[in-house]
Nucleic acid binder design. Structure first.
Lengths: 337, 337
DNA sequence: ACTAATTTCTTAATCGTTTTCGTAAAAAAT
DNA sequence: ATTTTTTACGAAAACGATTAAGAAATTAGT
């Protein structure tokens, strides 16, 4: 049903219906009620494409993320979608599967005005960020979250990665670790670099010399990650603590420890960034740095809507570091020998 | 940039550009190449709203699911999005948070033609399914997956819930359980009813009398679920095996066992439906029935696109039961006393 | 060489809204 | 009572693509 047909039912013009549904002051309360009541009754909704075309607004945002089968991102989406639904917006979702080619394709595609704004988390592979800057040149609001990058001058939501890295490493030192390895999920990602800096800061504070062979630069390839971590852990005496910057690397480490019969936490203590709800029930229970994924999603979305609805607002300067939490569990339990 | 402005750059008409970009046979190869090359260079894309309005097609589908911070649904979305991206479609995501009111609102909203088709998984609360039938009346393709319902005559993708329930229960019996409880995540959901029927079938086959007090009808309220399961497990001698129809109920059971100092698997064996990647690393490792979530998503999406692109196809008759797998781990380990 | 058929492009109508502008009617001001 | 202002609505022109129908240019057929 078109707005014209609908209008005919009430013997008024399409213009009046449109204005009534948009709560224009030009329309009397009486007429508004007649329109709204019938619209409710017949579930009449103006064609969104025609509306978007005319208004040049689609009430739609895009969420571009590396992966979804991931406790952090799925919770973040939960937060984003909640705010979007509150605001009456629709959320398109795009997965890059950590491929910069896919990311580039998706972002370039989104320049056609299909969405009013974009929430993105860069893929691991991505080293060139010009596509994000192109978005900004086209005045499409963009908020980066978690996987942010310095090259793009726009709003960013992250966690206190440096501090968390420091705290995690300090915790390992406090439980008696002397040779602490660091598993980097990326050697370029801003968040990972910050986590590493926190790690280095803690080592420095406790006068522990940095051993580069204990710093493992992992990638998106789980096979090669396996090899890397396996090689590290095989020379067991060289490492007694592991700070992992990503959940999946910790899982991999659990697997490798199980295969190599390395006892956690006796032989090796592990603390990791993770949003896993089951961390308490692992064998042994896993000490984690947990990011406020849901809140980050909400925060990022709120900021995006601010940018969309108040174009004068200089949202681009926002840089929010949200607080993550250290949950101490048995994987970093101090063992007195 | 509009198609007119773009056309002017090549000294041809907008119509020609449109046809060239849609690979019409009316346009010469030479012109097509000129158009496509410039479009590539300038990243020109026709306004999607104008296009959708004219064509009455949006190249967009909706995914309506109860929750996303959930291993099954996030993997299913992964599969759906992959197929959608291959087909050049966009995926809108809507979360109902298990609320039938929200579900109803979302589905009613989607009747305005914003999407070409819908993939849905009903919320637990939903008992009235007329909104889905309304969609079908409006000729909007609909594929239900996992949380399907008999009341709606459309395509459905599920798992072999009856068989899986039977196998899981049989496995508990084989490992020595005599008093097996069943944790139902819903008393109405089709999938859960089937799982229960499989459970009952196995009991019957082994001549184990059904004890209704061991069948716990859980809900979406985790607080009351806690009470229900806690009450069941406190009278410990009454139950020595637990078949859980949903992951979160198993997690809750682990928690309760830990609090009540019930040893798994010695005092109680547990097997559950779950897509948790960490099942092997739990304490004890958790025996699971695992659904092919990713493949289910792909299958559901493929079917939806078939319905969208071949309107004559009677996709509505499709009812696919995909095979789930039983992974036997330590939570159901036989203990010889 | 002339007509018919085919190829390739253009013009113009159309999709269903929103919004500007204009105009009655009603209310307020004189 | 007349003018001015305000209120409430309608007519028509956008928005930017697609496509049916028509026209020019080319090729084929006789």
């Amino acid at each position: 049903m078109t707005i014209k047909e609908f209008a005919k039912l009430l013997n008024i013009s399409a213009a009046t219906v449109s204005k009534a549904m948009n709560d224009s002051h030009e329309i009397s309360a009486i007429t508004k009620k007649r329109v709204l009541d019938l619209a409710e009754e017949l579930n009449f909704q103006p064609n969104p494409n025609a509306s978007s075309l005319r208004r040049n607004k689609n009430k739609t945002i895009a969420i571009v993320i590396p992966e979804i089968a991931n406790n952090f991102f799925s919770k973040a989406i939960d937060g984003i979608e909640m705010i979007a639904q509150q605001k009456g917006y629709h959320s398109l979702i795009y997965l890059t599967h950590e491929s910069s080619t896919k990311e580039l394709g998706i972002i370039k595609h989104l320049m056609n005005g299909r969405v009013d704004g974009i929430l993105a988390s860069a893929s691991l592979e991505t080293k060139d960020f010009t596509h994000y800057n192109d978005l900004l040149d086209k005045n499409i609001p963009l908020v980066l979250f978690d996987r942010v990058c310095e090259e793009v001058q726009t709003a960013k939501i992250t966690t206190d990665d440096f501090h968390a890295g420091y705290i995690a490493t300090k915790h390992l030192i406090d439980t008696g670790c002397k040779k602490i390895g660091f598993l980097a999920f990326s050697d370029v990602a801003y968040a990972c670099r910050k986590r590493k800096e926190g790690y280095l800061e803690a080592l420095s504070e406790y006068k522990i010399e940095v051993d580069e062979s204990l710093i493992i630069n992992c990638s998106n390839d789980m096979i090669s990650n396996f090899t890397l971590i396996n090689n590290l852990l095989k020379k067991r005496k060289k490492v007694d603590g592991l700070f992992s910057s990503a959940e999946n690397l910790a899982i991999l480490s659990y697997q490798i420890c199980s295969e190599l019969a390395i006892n956690i936490p006796k032989d090796l203590k592990i603390v990791t960034f993770s949003n896993m709800p089951m961390a308490s029930y692992l064998n042994p229970s896993l000490s984690t740095i947990t990011q406020p994924a849901f809140e980050m999603g909400k925060e990022a979305a709120s900021l995006l809507f601010l940018a969309i609805e108040k174009p004068r607002n200089n949202y681009k300067d926002v840089f929010t570091e949200m607080k993550s939490n250290l949950f101490i569990r048995n994987s970093t339990k101090r063992i007195f020998k």
